[in-house]
Nucleic acid binder design. Structure first.
Lengths: 194, 194
DNA sequence: CGCGACGTTGATTTGCCTCAACGATTGTGG
DNA sequence: CCACAATCGTTGAGGCAAATCAACGTCGCG
């Protein structure tokens, strides 16, 4: 059952009656996404929230200089959405693209609204999720302020080895907010030092 | 009534029955905080959430080099807490200090737990708050990646003129993630250019 | 008054970027 | 299946943004 991983994920966040869990998971549609496919392009209104079953996605923004800037990656058991666009029905600044052929569970904006109304515990579920996500983003901003590029690189590959092993150096560099040339120089230094 | 601003704030987020609003606000205790006072010091467990009625606070972290790094400011109608410490009952990395004599409404951890249980709409309220906060932190990280220090400075003073006017240049620089010397040079350039 | 914090400035250094070039790898169409 | 293009990682030269360190006058406050 494709929803099983989602069930486990939710059980890890809150205690929840089986019936509610079923009702929630029934709103999510499994879908396979081919490598390179965009689930969202900037300018579109994000009409879904996704839960990744397998594979890998990147969420990025194109800045004024035309450069792609990767905000984050989403792998198995992570979420996929532009909260701002999804909740405020406004055109997104973000792009979400599959880095490999992936499987996701998708829920539409209208189904999610219904869920909020009909299954009250969903509020608690997403309250908890957003709270955790908020902490993570705060910590990341702290790291960006306090750490050098090399330290951030080490933190990333140590904290998310299974993600970073899927990525090219260019993608990692973009996520860290540095150029891929400079990342290459960081890696050389690590090599020769050790 | 000190809770009036909080009521207005909540009404701005969700539609809510007056009785629930009363029940929520009754859990918040007004308190005056003298300039310089720490509401939270790193190592302590954050035992409160606060809503600022007037005044100004800074939330900062001390990095390994011993430098103070300001994460954000909280002024009237903003919230004040270390979510991570508050929710996970773990020692905080953060410090929260009043930059001027301020008035806040405080709710204890146990009272908030009760609120979540007894007034279900509180889940929805905080789900909405965290969701908005998450968007704000994401946008800030994007700005840190895509903008130069000068652009970030302009954005800050234009977006939050009433906050920045209360702050010293050192505090603004710390928030922007630059040195105060460099901020001084940015300001000089602005002066002579215009 | 004197002290400490502040904003400013200059000289120097450093972290990181830009641009350009190269071989290696991957992927793709003929 | 191979040839070609595209993308990748690497490297070097040079430049710029921002940090560091040190010094100075100013201001508010005890």
């Amino acid at each position: 059952m494709p929803q099983d991983r989602l069930k486990e994920h939710i059980r890890g966040i809150i205690q929840i009656p089986e019936a509610d869990l079923e009702a929630i998971c029934a709103c999510f549609q499994p879908q396979t996404v081919e490598k390179g496919t965009f689930l969202l392009r900037h300018g579109q209104i994000c009409n879904f929230e996704g839960f990744v079953l397998e594979g890998c996605f990147r969420t990025f923004i194109i800045d004024e200089a035309g450069r792609e800037n990767i905000l984050h990656f989403s792998v198995r058991d992570w979420w996929l959405m532009d909260i701002d666009s999804f909740m405020n029905r406004r055109p997104s600044d973000l792009n979400i693209q599959a880095l490999e052929t992936s499987k996701v569970l998708l829920i539409s904006q209208s189904d999610k609204q219904s869920l909020y109304q009909e299954v009250p515990i969903v509020e608690k579920l997403f309250r908890g999720m957003f709270q955790k996500a908020l902490v993570a983003w705060q910590r990341r901003l702290i790291r960006n302020h306090c750490l050098t590029a090399k330290e951030r690189y080490h933190h990333f590959i140590n904290t998310y080895p299974e993600i970073s092993s899927k990525l090219t150096d260019r993608q990692i560099a973009s996520y860290l907010g540095i150029t891929h040339e400079f990342l290459s120089k960081i890696k050389r230094e690590i090599r020769t030092r050790t």
